[in-house]
Computed example of a mutant assay.
Amino acid sequence: MIVSDRAAPGLTPSRRPDPASLPDNHLAYAIQWFAFALAAVIIYLLALRRRSR
């Protein structure tokens, strides 16, 4: 997040963002992308198997 230190004229400054309020989805994203990679490998292996017949 980008937050300005100074407010624009006539506005009140924003409060600093709290890092604890940000979602922590890193593990879920990692699992999701490893699952996609595994599915791609399985599809590739099935295609190679079909091609070799």
Rank of each mutant, 00 (worst) to 15 (best):
A40R: 04
R53H: 14
P13W: 01
R16Y: 02
S14Y: 08
S14Q: 15
M1P: 15
A35K: 03
A8N: 04
S52E: 15
Y29F: 14
L46T: 08
A7C: 08
H26V: 11
V41C: 03
M1G: 09
S52V: 13
R16D: 00
R49D: 07
N25F: 10
A35F: 03
I42P: 03
L46C: 10
L45A: 08
D24R: 06
A8P: 00
A7T: 05
N25M: 11
Y29N: 10
L48A: 06
A28I: 02
V41H: 04
P23W: 05
V41Q: 02
V3R: 00
W33E: 05
S52G: 11
P13H: 02
S21Q: 10
L38Q: 07
A7V: 08
D24P: 03
S52N: 14
D18C: 02
R49F: 14
S52C: 11
F34P: 00
R16E: 01
V3H: 01
H26L: 13
L38G: 08
R53D: 12
R16F: 00
L45K: 12
F36P: 00
A39Y: 06
V3P: 01
L48V: 08
L48R: 15
S21C: 04
I42K: 02
P23C: 05
T12S: 15
M1S: 14
A35I: 00
R15N: 09
I42S: 04
H26G: 14
A40N: 02
Q32F: 14
M1R: 09
D5Q: 14
I31W: 07
Y29D: 07
L22V: 11
A35V: 00
I43M: 04
P23L: 04
W33V: 05
L27H: 15
S4D: 13
L45Y: 13
S52D: 13
A37T: 10
D24N: 07
A39C: 10
R50N: 09
S14A: 14
L45N: 09
L27T: 15
A47F: 09
A37K: 05
A28S: 05
I31V: 15
